[in-house]
Design a protein around this nucleic acid. Structure first.
Lengths: 234, 234
DNA sequence: GTCTATAAACCGATAGAC
DNA sequence: GTCTATCGGTTTATAGAC
């Protein structure tokens, strides 16, 4: 199991994680980490043996503190599984909770960013994390999608799960260009909530499920009448 | 305008781009670049002045050689704009061409990967690239989406454009974990074509447009009959 | 334009005092 | 457990020969 670090060791992990998330493994020096943590650079060798080990440890720290929703919880004994409306609600809830896990201001921002960087720069420690955290959830997500649409092929379920992850990850991964396009310095909470509802809606309409009330705001098109009298066809 | 590099300068840009894409700016030494290019490390100072300048130059090289579809071309005088079916076809074409620009084996893989890295690691040179390449296309994409659904709010159009980009970028950005989940060493061409069709279909169904024939394969659910007699509801 | 040689700074890691 | 001092290696960048 995971042993919770404390004291100087914890301070080093937090400082290192923040710097690794921002500048990457090679872009961060152990002196910078030690300074930020108010510790001595020799402490890194003492506690972790090497910078690489410390990097792995920051990843372990994040995946053990970020608790995104486990799809399995919903697959086991959620009575909403019995109806299409219920499954749509479950999917919306999963998407919104995954957004929250990534972008909640209660969570330090570097958590999500470090995950993003680890996905781009695969390391041996990533494989263990993928196996432990992403793979089980991915398999369960495919099960849930097939539950919603039993006629889904394995590949289509796979692709839908990737579409979901891609849309969620995008706002962290491409944070700087997205904020530039939004002309903002930081994400506003309302924007991220809208993005979460929108993503849930993308999944639910793609599955042709009934739209639950929790996403309904995002789907509030003006009445179809206006769609008839628009610029299309004159 | 962009002046096409040649000779040693070109060799350095190509070698540097490949290494930067794989290991990042800090993870790549100018010696490794020079060796790979069959040149001398002093040549980098001679041609570019510094490693950072060379990095910027590799980005400039990529955005000037990768020619993803310009949405503007479709907004100006494509007669398919006149019908909902036509707009759906245009969207499918854009998605598939953007996939091709990223993942075509005719294009060196490091092009897309370097773009991904530059999105995660914002640098001053990125801002210029975003302004020059992403922003105009993003604005045009929103126009196209509003053309399809004039009742779309600005924010909804924004979110749909982000959903599209997120789904497309995901397969490059998270290449290693995705390949792990697929249990493959490399993407098969058929998989990427399926992913492109699937992504186009996600966009088209979200907009409630008629599904064009080019995506129809991906939507081939087995008849709804089987959906009635599935595990849901017993 | 391309090379060798080297300067100057920084890196990760560690030995040893306390 | 925390510190100073330092080793050995690598980094970027440049000066100067050809």
């Amino acid at each position: 199991m995971y042993k919770e670090p404390a004291g100087t060791k914890l301070a080093l992990i937090k400082s290192a994680g923040e710097l690794f998330a921002e500048y990457g493994l090679e872009g961060t020096s152990i002196r910078a980490i030690a300074d930020k943590a108010g510790a001595n650079s020799a402490a890194i060798s003492y506690y972790f043996g090497s910078k690489e080990n410390l990097y792995t440890e920051t990843l372990r720290y994040v995946v053990n503190h970020d608790k995104p929703p486990r799809v399995r919880e919903y697959l086991e004994g959620d009575e909403r599984l019995e109806s299409a409306e219920g499954i749509a609600e479950i999917i919306a809830e999963i998407v919104q909770r995954k957004f929250a896990a990534f972008y909640s201001q209660k969570q330090p921002r570097w958590h999500g960013r470090l995950i993003m960087r680890s996905l781009l720069d695969p390391s041996p420690s990533l494989i263990a994390i993928v196996e432990q955290f992403f793979l089980p959830d991915h398999i369960d997500m495919k099960k849930l999608l097939k539950r919603a649409r039993p006629d889904l092929t394995e590949q289509r379920a796979q692709l839908m799960a990737f579409s979901m992850m891609g849309q969620i990850a995008f706002y962290e991964f491409a944070r700087a260009p997205v904020l530039y396009l939004l002309d903002r310095k930081e994400y506003e909470e309302g924007f991220l909530e809208a993005a979460a509802r929108h993503t849930a809606l993308m999944m639910i309409t793609a599955l042709d499920l009934p739209v639950p009330a929790s996403c309904a705001v995002a789907t509030a098109y003006t009445p179809p009448k206006s769609a008839e009298t628009n610029s299309i066809g004159k």
